[in-house]
């Protein structure tokens, strides 16, 4: 078991269930020590990808490497990887403390004080049986396991479902505090993009089993732009760039466009007197994944 954060790489990673490709040739790298956001619509392949990373499943073709090794049934990489799944992976008919005790024995870097502190912060009674917990409380157990394990590769797959806003804040703050003190590779899969996007250093957007966008979160965010102004002027500046959304208001057009890194469009548009706004990761995600026939554009880094 290592203590250093570890990296993940996928090459042509494909996973087929019956006739359906849940993942269809995914190439990507998850940087060691960074917080990566994994975004995608329902059925985009996020959970499949994470199960492959955790070594719970085997790829149909292509390769997945965790710290340079094939993670499937691999005792070394599995000891370093904590995947918190939506189901919770807890002993249903036993008290929460039994599950926490099991992880304490399993995880070399388990921090019992952190686990107890989080349970207090969540006001979670750990003597309750897991099967009697609410949906939100089950997510809290997942959050506690994920953070207190301090695994070099920690993955949260929608670990927020059912939690109310104050409890989600508690979780995010605890995650950042503990991450800053104990840097590790963290992957967060979430549909609540606007409330977590500022925690991401990198972002991956999956769509229909493929990587749609992958890169530095700030750079990805900067690629979405909304131009508002005289329709002819907007049109002229647009050129051949990818239009994500368009709204015509008489002689005025508002166009959301996908730019490439280093594009001079924002400067040109401001010079031309157009209004230039960012669109935010959440809106960019919605625009990008709404297009049904979206063609993967490859990595942006």
């Amino acid at each position: 078991m290592t203590t250093a954060p570890i990296a993940v790489a996928a090459h042509g990673l494909t996973k087929r269930y019956d006739d359906v490709d849940a993942l269809a040739g995914v190439d990507l790298e998850i940087r060691a020590g960074a917080v990566t956001g994994l975004l995608g619509r329902n059925g985009a392949g996020k959970s499949t990808l994470l199960q492959l990373v955790a070594g719970f499943e085997r790829p149909t073709s292509g390769r997945i490497l965790v710290d340079g090794e094939d993670p499937f049934d691999n005792a070394v990489t599995m000891a370093d990887t904590q995947l918190v799944r939506e189901g919770g992976d807890a002993f249903a008919s036993e008290p929460v403390t039994d599950t926490l005790g099991w992880y304490r024995d399993l995880r070399e870097h388990w921090d019992a004080d952190l686990a107890a502190g989080l349970a207090d912060a969540f006001e979670l009674d750990t003597s309750q049986k897991v099967e009697n917990l609410s949906r939100g409380q089950s997510s809290m157990v997942g959050a506690i396991i994920g953070l207190a394990s301090r695994a070099p590769l920690t993955i949260f797959d929608e670990t927020y479902i059912g939690m109310d806003a104050p409890n989600r804040e508690t979780f995010y703050e605890a995650l950042l505090t503990d991450y800053a003190a104990h840097p590790r590779t963290i992957v967060i899969s979430s549909h609540l993009i606007s409330e977590v996007e500022r925690m991401f250093e990198d972002v991956v957007i999956l769509d229909a089993g493929r990587v749609l966008v992958h890169g530095d979160a700030d750079e990805v965010r900067a690629r979405g732009l909304t131009l508002t102004g005289r329709a002819t002027e907007v049109e002229r500046l647009l050129g051949t760039r990818d239009v994500l959304a368009r709204r015509d208001l008489g002689p005025t057009s508002q166009i959301t466009v996908l730019t490439q890194p280093g594009d001079e469009l924002p400067a040109l548009a401001r010079q031309a007197g157009l209004e230039v706004d960012g669109v935010g990761l959440q809106d960019l995600f919605v625009h990008l994944t709404r297009r049904t026939a979206a063609s993967p554009e490859g990595e942006s880094r």
Binding site: V35, E173, A180, A181, E201, D218
Partner: peptide, 15 residues
């Protein structure tokens, strides 16, 4: 500190 800043504003410490 970057850690205080990150937790206060809930942003990535690296950012």
């Amino acid at each position: 500190s970057t850690t205080q800043f990150a937790t206060t504003y809930r942003i990535n410490p690296a950012t």
